[in-house]
Design a protein around this nucleic acid. Structure first.
Lengths: 343, 343
DNA sequence: CTTCAGTTTGCATACGTATGCAGAAAGTTC
DNA sequence: GAACTTTCTGCATACGTATGCAAACTGAAG
């Protein structure tokens, strides 16, 4: 059962050339004559030789591995992003090494150490923060980091997010224009920049119309917490007539509670707006009005930033914010004559 | 910006010992005196040394990387499994390298080559098949493979699935007991063992009651295809009164079409049963009756099989089938006095 | 203090590849 | 065909670690 590894030396012997020649044939851009290439490729073919990426990385200092740190995949936004990131990176010859982590500093630090052990060429964190000590270590190790869908005040960390403040503001504007006056917010986790920015944008939007948030509870980006918050907010008799929920994943829970527990009509009794536009949001069962995070463009920006650092030695830190449209669907009252922003 | 890597040699110099000593301190089970360990660990601590996993793998022949090949993450079953697999493997010091792949032989073969380049210690494929040539290559390379949620007739490939035949049969029994007589099937992709087994189990169950499948279309595990199939099957006037859908992901599409396009009541007009029991199935918006694939136990079986091959040199091929219960919810008529199998 | 077994250490080498350097071959120009 | 330039090849070495082997040390028993 034990494998006999075939190495570049074996190929060299068979082709009657030196090991360096074999290496050069498999190194793009190296200098080899056509007939050398042919001889070597033939021998390699016959033996089933393929270069050992790990051994190569030892010399070149490049592993072609990107570490992805992610806290949970329950929210559909993340598997979707993971799929797109992986596909995009694969096209450039990189692959993703996954690190699941509990979303606290200790967990992240521990895992990040393991990550560096693998000599990753770059790190993407999806909605996970980093301690300063850690950011320093990555910088010291020369490993570029991109925070995907999470901002953080650190001069060393690239980040790609949607324009969360503006998104929150847009949603406020939309709800106000729809005639809502008692507006609640089930917020994204206050420990995250996304949660905070969406909330402050939302608040700014309401304030601009002379309104305030009627009721606000942190939903922790968690389905159960959001459901409990909904019960709390909507079971009294002074209930709001609209709610902005910090992401779609929680918004589904909110709608389920409103409809199936509290027997309220959405959007008749309550308008619900989410954030993300995950695929499920467009399914008729929810038909959720939500602010789209343009994951394609976010992924694109993430990949090009990362590859810029890795391959072109770039070192200017990017803080990229991408605007997304409000996807108007059936879960919230549509203001008279509101322009349809859909793509 | 370039990093000064700290190596075992640096640590050795600082601690005033040999490089081998350092190596031994970081190799579990090697022979080192307590005071040597202390000296080395202190020096390592001060320099921030951590062993280079890649260099280590060159010597030991173990990379502590498991390759995961997966076709798409849209169906919630897979991110869920990925999360659990990754967490379980991490606990054993392994990590998952992700390979997204289009579900055809050419795509799989190409990607699998890249996979072997990384010297992975094992391979898990999630609902993806392998050509025989490929299975042979993995066997030759001594890399164990586990097919997760996919069976295949190959003596060299481990596999872990739910008991799809029995699951299909149970569902037939359930629907028949519910008084349904015109029963349709939107099948899982006929190119997959899961799809075929569920279908034949279902058929066997119906036959046992003297019934047959009224109408059957391959839904390709694809939302759009399943939706189209639903329109096809249910828009005529001789419509079935129940449908078994090959997985939950398609079942949601089917319910959406039935309710929102065809204005049929579920389960009043049509009973719908799915397969998988993804988290979404239990959300009230769908409240889908479905056969649970016990992903926890499937993951556990996958991990222990894989580690058995890798660490204990096991070489008996496992073909594991795990039974799952029918989760009875609100999308299908419940037969009088039917025992509740829920956990 | 000697002997001997057991433990700990350093030396040297190996893993599979890439690359600087110098020499060989091939091509160009007169 | 000589002189020169360009392209190609092999030699040697390096990357960071683990491990067999023999030497050095430790401690116990006599």
């Amino acid at each position: 059962m034990r494998a006999e590894k075939v190495t570049s030396v074996d190929v060299a012997r068979r082709a009657g050339v030196s090991q360096s020649a074999v290496s050069r044939v498999f190194t793009p851009g190296a200098s080899v004559s056509p007939k050398m290439a042919e001889k070597v490729l033939k021998a390699a073919q016959e033996l089933g030789y393929r270069p050992n990426v790990l051994a190569r990385s030892l010399i070149t200092g490049r592993s072609r591995i990107i570490g992805l740190v992610v806290a949970y995949l329950e929210n559909q936004f993340y598997p979707d992003a993971l799929e797109k990131l992986s596909t995009a990176l694969q096209a450039h010859g990189y692959h993703i090494l996954v690190f699941m982590v509990s979303n606290d500093d200790a967990g992240v630090d521990k895992v990040m150490g393991e990550l560096l052990d693998y000599q990753v060429d770059g790190i993407i964190t999806a909605s996970v923060g980093m301690s300063n000590a850690l950011a320093a270590r990555c910088a010291a190790a020369g490993v570029p980091v991109v925070l995907f869908n999470r901002g953080q005040d650190d001069e060393r960390l690239n980040q790609v997010t949607s324009n969360n403040f503006e998104g929150g503001r847009k949603i406020a504007e939309f709800l106000v224009a729809g005639g809502h006056r008692r507006i609640a917010h089930i917020a994204g986790w206050s420990g995250s920049s996304t949660g905070r920015d969406r909330q402050s944008g939302f608040l700014a939007g309401l304030n601009a119309a002379g309104l305030d948030i009627t009721r606000c509870i942190d939903g922790m980006y968690n389905r159960e917490t959001a459901a409990a918050a909904t019960r709390e907010i909507f079971s009294g008799n002074e209930r709001p007539d609209a709610v902005f929920v910090g992401n779609d994943h929680m918004a589904f829970a909110v709608m389920d509670v409103l409809r199936f527990e509290l027997k309220l009509d959405v959007p008749g009794d309550v308008s619900v707006v989410g954030y993300d536009d995950v695929p499920l949001a467009s399914w008729p069962a929810y038909d959720l009005t939500t602010l789209r995070q343009p994951s394609n463009r976010m992924v694109e920006a993430t990949v090009s930033t990362l590859l810029g650092w890795i391959e072109e030695g770039s070192n200017d830190v990017q803080k990229i914010q991408i605007d997304g449209p409000l996807m108007i669907r059936g879960s919230a009252r549509i203001p008279e004559g509101w322009p349809d922003e859909r793509l």
